[in-house]
Write a protein that binds this DNA or RNA. Structure first.
Lengths: 349, 349
DNA sequence: ATGAAAGCGCTAACAG
DNA sequence: CTGTTAGCGCTTTCAT
């Protein structure tokens, strides 16, 4: 910029002013303005990012923290974010926590250090009763100069911004859906996770049962304490459940990956899905795979987009940060696509 | 830092010197050094990122450019990178190009602007004969102050650093493997893409045929001009190939996603995999899915790790940039897991 | 062993 | 309308 100014015989101020579009306010002659603009273009001038950030305290970078990016849920949410962030001239800085709270904390620190303007985060939920809770999210909750929007789940406090799907309603609808399909003994299978989303799904499930005059039984409830869905824990629990006398004729499984595994196990027990038992879960099937499950379709892309839009609002209008925004998107119930067809994993070159 | 210095009654210089560990060289008393260090720790002092970057011209951030992150290939390569970058105190800035060259160019520009120390990139390959080639990678190839390591494929020039698998060898082995399984007419199915990787696979395939005294036929060759593997193009081509007189009894498919789709189509034509026809491809099956294909197992995590390690070397030892590093990793051939078992998509909550 | 001073590239009062 | 000036927070050379 100095060079530019020298070359034009102007002061740095003038150039700076013009370049940030304040020419009007300072009544700078349109001729000099044009000269500056043209010269800048010709020299492919771009302000130095660090110098600018140093004085402006603004970077145009959004910090994204996700458990991973390969699950369809995550990558579709990210797509939604990209859709709004890119046109708005923001850049994403993406970190994955790999279900590791340490790493998550580290990443958050890194992003803060690197001066992101705001955060979009899907955090790791601990197993219920685990000692370390959400302490590492404190830096996010306390930082008033940098807004955070939580996605899919939020820390216990409501003093934060978040965008989630209506987990309660989804589970409620799914459970009633199962009942309408003729199920009388509807079991519950879930990771035993301390997340607002899972908790809401449980409440929705229970409300659904109540509404149809059904009851839940301890025997037909499975709470898993491991994320490895191929673990023997799950298999044993499912077998036990299906061998018992009051065997369920329907299952509500809180998450998609788990549900697929449950399907397998059900079949391994000699039962046939959609005949002996119905299964409902969150998250829809990929196009190449009809699972035969009743699905609560998550508005993933939309959630990402809404979260990103909210965040940019909060960044650009600091006053709005005072009021906590809670955005809850209603999911849609998708009946099992019959007949159940097993395709192959597609689109993964 | 100013506060720190004031509080300790020292000059900023001293503090700065101590903090960067140069206390020894400047013979600063160990007592003052300790005082400074302790105070710094107590005040949770961290140098300002932008001020530092402004003077140092170094950020500790690595720019990562990938077509996407949801394909298993991509996410595993990234895992390998994380494995070496995190312990080495680097942070990743990840951008996806979504198979869009515009976006790819934009992302590269953004990352340069944001002052990354180096690049790790899997770029988009155009279809063969498409006008816009690798021009947008120029900024990477020309930038001597910021090394780039290409992964999985490299621009036509060899004047660059790259880490790839031995595509030629993999394809060669796979083709010979098919022949050893009894195939006499081995067809070739591929995206018609202008990538070094795909080209090497084709050459490997041809060499494999030659070595076994087999010949390729135009009729048993399918070159696709769309990335949408559910397209009717592929279905039609496969049908045509399988209906003809010299129907292939083996197929080498260059990429994994495509191969799965081909399996489906083969079955849709009334043929049975592993009986009427054998299929070989790159990329191994996920644990929950035995495809029945002969697989060239890609060393994905290792590729990511090697690339990252190479890049940090290049960053930290500028002199090494003068010699172009080409790292080629040998893949392993994995026979079809029998019997072919169709599982369900797991691990995707 | 420690401090003063210049500068990285840009912004923003304020004075002409 | 344009120029002067004082930072932003840190590094580094050069005196002391």
């Amino acid at each position: 910029m100095k060079d530019l100014a020298a070359q034009l015989g102007l002061s740095r101020t003038t150039v700076s002013l013009v370049l940030k579009g304040a020419a009007g306010r300072y009544r700078i002659s349109s001729t000099t303005r044009d000269r500056v603009l043209r010269a800048a273009r010709r020299a492919r001038y771009r302000p130095n990012y660090f110098a600018r950030a140093l004085t402006m305290r603004r970077t145009g970078v959004i910090g994204i923290v996700f458990p991973n990016v390969f699950e369809t849920f995550m990558s579709e949410v990210i797509k939604g974010m990209e859709d709004v962030l890119y046109p708005a001239e923001y850049t994403m800085m993406l970190c994955t926590s790999r279900f590791d709270r340490e790493l998550e904390a580290r990443n958050i620190e890194q992003l803060r250090y690197r001066g992101v303007d705001g955060f979009l985060v899907v955090f790791n939920a601990p197993f219920r009763g685990e000692p370390y809770g959400y302490g590492h999210l404190r830096p996010l909750l306390n930082d008033t100069s940098r807004p955070t929007v939580f996605v899919d789940r939020y820390p216990r406090t409501k003093r934060c911004h978040y965008v989630v799907q209506d987990d309660y309603r989804g589970a409620y609808d799914a459970t009633r859906g199962l009942a309408r399909m003729g199920c009388r003994r509807i079991g519950y299978v879930s990771l035993d996770i301390d997340a607002t989303s899972v908790e809401a799904r449980r409440r929705g499930y229970e409300a659904g049962l109540r509404e149809r005059g059904l009851r839940k039984s301890t025997q037909n409830t499975v709470l898993l304490r491991t994320r490895d869905s191929t673990s023997e824990d799950l298999a044993a629990a499912i077998r036990r459940m299906l061998d018992g006398p009051g065997r369920p004729d329907g299952l509500f499984v809180t998450t998609n990956g788990l549900a697929h595994r449950v399907c397998e196990l059900v079949e391994a027990c000699g039962l046939t899905l959609n005949r002996d038992i119905q299964i409902a879960t969150f998250g829809s099937d990929p196009p190449w795979f009809a699972s035969g499950m009743l699905c609560v379709e998550q508005p993933r892309v939309e959630m990402g987009a809404r979260a990103a839009r909210l965040l940019t609002q909060l960044i650009e209008h600091p006053r709005r940060r005072r009021v906590w925004k809670h955005c809850v998107i209603r999911p849609r119930l998708v009946p099992p696509s019959a007949p159940a067809r097993h395709g192959r994993p597609g689109g993964r070159p």
